[in-house]
Design a protein around this nucleic acid. Sequence first.
DNA 1: CAGGACTCTCAGCGCCCTCTCAGGGCGTTG
DNA 2: CAACGCCCTGAGAGGGCGCTGAGAGTCCTG
Lengths: 224, 224
Amino acid sequence: MRLLLVEDEARLAASLVRGLRADGVVVEVAEDGPTGLRLARELDFDVIVLDLMLPHMSGFRVCQELRRANVWTPILVLTAKTGEFDEIESLDSGADDFLTKPFSYSVLLARLRVLLRRDVNERPVVLEADDLRLDPATKSCARAGVDIALSAREFSLLEYFLRNANRVLSKDEILDHVWDPDFDGSPNIVEVYVGYLRRKIDRPFSTNSIVTVPRSGYLFQCGA
Amino acid sequence: MRLLLVEDEARLAASLVRGLRADGVVVEVAEDGPTGLRLARELDFDVIVLDLMLPHMSGFRVCQELRRANVWTPILVLTAKTGEFDEIESLDSGADDFLTKPFSYSVLLARLRVLLRRDVNERPVVLEADDLRLDPATKSCARAGVDIALSAREFSLLEYFLRNANRVLSKDEILDHVWDPDFDGSPNIVEVYVGYLRRKIDRPFSTNSIVTVPRSGYLFQCGA
DNA sequence: CAGGACTCTCAGCGCCCTCTCAGGGCGTTG
DNA sequence: CAACGCCCTGAGAGGGCGCTGAGAGTCCTG
């Protein structure tokens, strides 16, 4: 773990560095605001510990400047003041947490653990098949970079195809998964909607993703 | 924003609920550990405020059980004790932050803002989407530098949209997060307020941030 | 007490989505 | 070759769904 400590009090800094290094943390120290800002922008840290009272430039400023420069490294602010005003202001200026001096080393460590625990949820569950993209989160669809407007039913159907690509799906199967369970119309509706889809995602691009398998159903093919 | 408050002291709970609701937060209250645990597991909250001293089950246990059950909602622990031991133990048992009683309401709010910002991919304090800016701390809103006056409800709704940008939100989902839990009107209210927002943040600027996704809900889109 | 801001309800309207239906093409089967 | 089954598609009905204006109720403020 790489940590940047921005702290001008030599004694405190030295003792923190000793403790952190003993715990296997890679520590860099900056002794004033501008230096801290520069290091934070130029190097890649996992977390920043920032004192509020600094020579030349306050911790507030450093914090704000960093966020403004689009640096989102977690910041833990240290403050000797006890007023809640500072507290609120640090948090609102972009800090992730703060600690009031004096504090114990173990508390600092526990806080750092929390800050580092954020495993940012990877999300993009985008369905892709060749040049076709389907995003369930935004209900959007595009082929070869061209946006395609789909109705709700069309989207559900295409989503089902993509999730079962390269597999023959019978009309009844499709009916079960894409239409309401209590739908009692004829399977012809599937043919109708397959037709709609082909007109939107195949014909304009001269592709042939949705293949009819006579007497069996349909097949969405990709990755050929 | 949906918040779960687990607190058995009625006076404190009531005053927090009043304050939070006035700020547009949707609050549910649990008065003991097991109830809190159950609600937290069954419902979808944005943040949990948890007292340590609780009937039937301590805050520690609640916290641990939740994390064990794979519920990662941010948790802010309230504690009356002053020893740092509790502090470390809460943080290590899965809490994201803690606050020692007595505390001021504004500090609580600031901490909550931090937790929420963290939850949704490390967001700055001010919510931004293209040229739209929303500041939860001051309840102010501006597009392209022009200030826009929003009512409390409109603000909550827009804030929810911004925190879930580029994702389709169903009307029920919106109802759950922006309106009180005991609201039992029809989802039409969402359409009405979306209409209000569009008149204020889209029409005057010829933009189209809030998109209707028929039969699915609404989508706030930005950064396209 | 009047006026205004805000929240919510309700009903009307219009669009487009969904689904039905029937006719035609095509391959298969007798 | 005729008959049949299977698939495709255009036309069109109906209704669900979303949007909006009007207005009632409430609270706050001057």
